[in-house]
Amino acid sequence: MHTRVKLLTGLLGSLLILVALSGCGSTTAVPQYEQAEGYRYLERKITDNYYLLSITSKHKADLLINAQTQASILTEQLGFDWYIIVEQNGPDDTTPPYLQTIEIRMGKGIRP
């Protein structure tokens, strides 16, 4: 009986540690920049040189330009020389707010 209690306590302790550590690896996006007129920029780090950027705006025309501008700023801030757009989605909604997402890969030196 005493061995079962120790085993159960050890299993519960291990489970608690596992749950606590799983929260540390979260890649939840956090708003990086927000304005009153509905502009919002979020970035999500996928790897050290691969990011997902999301731009939300009431104005559809400037979304891709804003996304590319944010990609350039992020690339420079992280010390990379260039970036390429790996994938791009949106805007496909017909009513505001519009959403544009791009996935970028950054690098140093000669661009592929």
Rank of each mutant, 00 (worst) to 15 (best):
Y83W: 11
N49V: 11
L99T: 14
K58P: 04
D81F: 03
N49L: 08
Y33C: 04
I46H: 08
G90Q: 02
I104E: 03
A67D: 05
R105E: 13
T3W: 12
M106D: 08
Y41N: 04
I17F: 10
R111G: 05
T101S: 12
L11G: 06
A71Y: 04
G109T: 12
L21N: 14
P91F: 00
S26H: 04
L12R: 11
G109E: 08
G25Q: 01
E103K: 12
T3C: 04
T56Q: 14
T94Q: 10
R40N: 04
T56M: 05
Y51G: 02
T47L: 02
A61H: 12
R40A: 07
Q100G: 02
L78D: 05
R40S: 08
I110P: 05
Q32N: 13
K108R: 15
R44Y: 05
F80V: 02
A29Y: 05
Y83F: 15
G38D: 03
G13K: 06
K45M: 07
T9I: 06
L7D: 07
A67W: 01
Q88Y: 01
T69I: 11
E43T: 09
A36H: 11
Y41K: 07
S26G: 11
G10M: 09
K58F: 13
R105T: 09
T94C: 00
P97W: 00
L63G: 02
I17T: 12
Q68Y: 08
T56I: 11
P97H: 01
N49M: 07
S26M: 06
D92H: 09
V19M: 04
T75D: 02
Y51D: 02
Y83R: 06
L53Y: 02
V19Y: 11
G38W: 13
G90M: 01
L99R: 13
I104H: 01
I84L: 09
Y33A: 09
H2M: 02
V5L: 14
D93V: 03
Y98P: 02
V5T: 15
T56N: 05
D92P: 00
G107H: 14
L42Y: 06
C24F: 13
G25D: 04
E76V: 12
K6H: 08
